[in-house]
Amino acid sequence: MKRWAAVLLCVGFIGSTQVVGAVSARKSVEASMMLTGSLELAADGSVSSYALDRQDLQPEIADLIKRNVATWRFKAQDGGTLPGKTSMLLRLVAKPVGDGNFGVSIVGANFGEKDPASSISFKDRQWPKYPDMARHAKAGGIAYLMLRVDRSGHVTDAAVAQVDLTSVSSDSDMRTLRTVLGDAAMRAAQNWTFNLPTQGPHANDASWVVRVPVNFHMRDQGLPDKDGWMAYIPGPRQEIPWLAAYRASIAGAVDTSSEETPSLVGTGPVLTTPLNQG
């Protein structure tokens, strides 16, 4: 790899992007923001109220969320009862629309209670070693993993769903880097163990599926800016055959999860309407 450059993004409402590197990569730069909060759900599945943990959002972003939340409708998992309140994790993405402008939409969401006894958490996690090739090139990215965990807390299936890059180079070099980062993350994850749910409707499940992002970054690369936006070159979504049964529970994106808290798939209320309606 001969030439890599960090992706730089300035976001006012949605600002301008400046990338040094391959032309095709410059055209595909995106930025994402993760937001947490909670929803109050009515018996009919509508949202009676919501709250965001962050209060300093740009008015346009706050309005986008307000307009879309008003259209959401939910149903309970497996014909159960809807919870009166649920936590939410939203992923917003800004994409170029021409003339230096960006359009923002909600592309992913994760809904569910955060009660530790009803959730899954890391028990033993050794973070992957930074691959030598990527370290020498000062290149980074985020590998989004999907893991299936058995009742012993061990990983029985692991797959790389997507790898986004925070550095750019030629198309061939970026393909190589995605493979290198994804393989490093998956090798490490196969040795992780988890604390399992001890109560709630999924405590007796035969297995669980979790989403975990693994961030490979050097210095300030791969970290959000002061407004919470992180720039990257999106990678292709990979088809994972064993994940097909959980597709309805993923709510639009495999990359809506926290590095510190694994996201349990197939739990929490199910969104039955479009996540983003403009």
Score class of each variant (00 low, 15 high):
Phe102Arg: 13
Val104Ala: 00
Asn195Trp: 13
Tyr144Arg: 02
Ser24Lys: 14
Phe13Pro: 08
Met33Asp: 00
Gly266Asp: 02
Ile61Ala: 00
Gln277Glu: 07
Gln18Gly: 12
Ala109Arg: 04
Ser118Ala: 14
Lys66Phe: 00
Leu89Ser: 06
Ala251Pro: 01
Ser32Leu: 05
Leu196Ala: 03
Arg219Tyr: 12
Ala206Leu: 03
Ala161Pro: 03
Ser207Asp: 14
Ala188Gln: 07
Asp99Gln: 12
Leu181Pro: 09
Gly268Ser: 04
Leu264Thr: 14
Thr17Gly: 11
Thr267Lys: 07
Trp208Asn: 06
Gln77Phe: 05
Arg211His: 10
Glu60Lys: 00
Asn204Pro: 04
Asp205Tyr: 14
Ser249Tyr: 15
Val270Thr: 05
Asn110Cys: 08
Ser170Arg: 15
Met230Tyr: 07
Leu243His: 02
Arg151Lys: 15
Val270Trp: 12
Ala117His: 05
Ala43Gln: 02
Ala158Gln: 11
Thr193Gly: 09
Arg211Tyr: 13
Arg178Gln: 09
Trp208Tyr: 13
Ala51Glu: 14
Ala143Gln: 05
Met174Glu: 02
Ser48Ala: 06
Lys95Asp: 02
Leu64Gly: 00
Val214His: 07
Asn204Glu: 06
Pro241Asp: 13
Leu52Ser: 04
Leu82Ile: 03
Val107His: 12
Ala5Pro: 02
Pro131Asn: 01
Val23Thr: 04
Leu57Ser: 00
Lys2Ile: 09
Arg247Pro: 01
Ala22Gln: 12
Asn204Asp: 03
Ile120Cys: 09
Ser28Tyr: 08
Trp208Thr: 08
Trp242Ile: 03
Trp242Lys: 02
Ser152Met: 05
Val97Leu: 03
Leu64Pro: 00
Ala251Tyr: 11
Gly100Thr: 06
His217Leu: 10
Tyr50Arg: 00
Asp171Met: 14
Thr176Asp: 11
Trp208Met: 06
Ala188Glu: 03
Val180Lys: 14
Arg219Ile: 03
Phe111Ser: 04
Ser207Cys: 09
Thr198Phe: 07
Leu275Ser: 03
Ile240Lys: 15
Pro128Phe: 12
Gln277Cys: 13
Gly98His: 07
Gly278Cys: 06
Thr267Ile: 07
Leu165Ser: 04
Trp242Met: 02
Thr71Glu: 10
Ser169His: 08
Pro59Trp: 00
Gly141Gln: 02
Phe102Leu: 11
Gln277Pro: 03
Pro59Phe: 00
Lys27Asp: 09
Gly252Thr: 11
Asn68Trp: 01
Ala206Lys: 11
Gly153Tyr: 08
